[in-house]
Simulated scan of single mutants.
Amino acid sequence: MNNKVNEIKISYKEKVRTLNSIAIKSSSEAAKLIFEQWNNDTIGLHESFKVLLLNNSNKIKGIYQLSTGGITGTVVDIRILFAIIIKTLSVGIILAHNHPSGKLEASTSDMALTQKIKNAAAFFDVKVLDHLIIVPDGSYYSFADEGIL
């Protein structure tokens, strides 16, 4: 009997050298960058969840869209989130999701998810620097600025 096993291959390839990218220094810089990357046709339609991946100097490695949901929520699979973080060897992350309604407030489920991710990140020595809620007009809510991170 010939047992076959899948080969696992992990790779990450930079299209833009991280060393040449900008360093994130504030929530406003992060929010502006993330908003610019959001699809203007869908930001007011349904929720999506993204992660901004950073190196030790807070330079941008990339943005990954983790999920797309419905009008009032989206599912975040923490295993996939950490697979992306580890695969890219990121040491800092900024979480972001949109509120199509334009409501600039964190819900209790937003806060619980953020805490769950923050606790998991500690095991991997990854810093959760912020969680941003972006609304269709480009305004944002920062967990770090509000002192709830």
Rank of each mutant, 00 (worst) to 15 (best):
M1T: 13
M1N: 10
M1E: 11
N2K: 12
N3C: 09
N3A: 12
V5I: 10
V5S: 13
V5R: 07
V5E: 10
E7N: 10
I8D: 12
I10P: 12
S11C: 12
E14Y: 03
E14M: 12
K15E: 14
V16D: 08
R17I: 13
R17P: 10
T18G: 14
L19M: 08
N20H: 07
S21W: 03
I22R: 06
A23D: 10
K25E: 15
K25I: 14
S27N: 11
S27Y: 09
S27W: 00
S27F: 06
E29Y: 05
E29W: 03
E29K: 11
A30M: 05
K32F: 11
K32I: 11
L33T: 12
I34D: 03
E36T: 11
E36H: 14
N39K: 07
N39F: 04
N39G: 05
D41R: 11
T42G: 07
I43G: 07
I43L: 06
L45P: 02
E47A: 12
K50E: 12
K50G: 10
V51K: 00
L52N: 03
L52H: 04
L52Y: 07
N55G: 06
S57R: 08
S57V: 08
N58P: 05
N58K: 13
N58Q: 09
K59P: 01
K61R: 07
G62V: 06
G62N: 04
I63F: 01
Y64K: 14
Q65N: 13
Q65M: 11
L66A: 05
L66K: 04
T68A: 14
G69E: 06
T72C: 09
V75T: 15
D77Q: 01
D77T: 04
R79Y: 13
R79C: 08
L81E: 08
F82T: 11
A83N: 14
A83L: 15
I85F: 00
I85N: 05
I86C: 12
I86F: 04
T88N: 07
T88A: 11
L89P: 08
S90I: 03
S90H: 04
S90V: 02
V91W: 14
V91T: 15
V91K: 15
I93E: 01
I93C: 01
I94V: 04
I94D: 01
A96Y: 03
A96L: 05
H97K: 09
P100Q: 05
P100D: 04
S101Q: 05
K103Q: 11
L104G: 02
L104E: 03
L104W: 02
L104H: 06
T108V: 12
T108W: 02
T108A: 15
S109G: 04
S109N: 06
D110Q: 01
L113N: 06
K116R: 12
I117K: 00
I117G: 00
K118E: 00
A120G: 11
A121T: 01
A121N: 06
A122I: 00
F123G: 08
V126A: 01
V126C: 04
V126H: 00
K127N: 13
K127L: 14
V128K: 04
L129H: 06
D130Q: 10
H131L: 10
H131S: 12
H131A: 13
H131D: 05
I133V: 15
I133K: 11
I133H: 04
I134F: 03
V135D: 06
P136W: 02
D137C: 03
Y141C: 13
F143G: 03
D145I: 07
E146W: 01
E146V: 00
G147T: 00
I148D: 07
I148Q: 07
I148M: 07
